[in-house]
Amino acid sequence: MRIIKSLSLLVLVLVLCMVLIPSVSAHRVQLRELISEVEIKAWYGGGDPMPNADVEIYSIRDEQEKLYLEGKTDENGLYYFAPELGTTSYRVVVELTGHKGELEFDLTAGSQPENAELPLYLSVLVGFGFLAGIGGIAAYLSARKMKAQ
């Protein structure tokens, strides 16, 4: 009788162990990345933000484009939106009274650095270079004309 009692206790303990094992192994840590918000920043050349501008977000899927969201930038020229499930390619158009900018991007590709353009002082120098060249050629031609006379 004692043996049966202790045996049944053993069985009970084993059964409990079996029940508990899966729950122990379920402590594996699971991770999943999910981009829940995309920030769009709009600013003018020179760095001033573009507040209150109309924003249109187009989602691109299988090279098919459709209007996904419409809105306005906040006072810092920022606009946030949640991406559509399963769509990673977007085209963004920001427009405000004659100013318009466009950006096409893919969420999996990462963000482009902000200053991909030629530095401003270089653009200015290039411009001055052109004008100095035009002016110089003209000055040369008019000097030659004067000499010929």
Binding site: L120, F128, S142
Partner: peptide
């Protein structure tokens, strides 16, 4: 006239960079 061109170039340079003063 060709003699006007250097003067135009100088003024154009000013107009060109004026848009940067914002």
């Amino acid at each position: 006239k060709i003699d006007d061109v250097p003067k135009i170039s100088v003024i154009t340079a000013a107009v060109f960079v004026a848009s940067l003063i914002h």
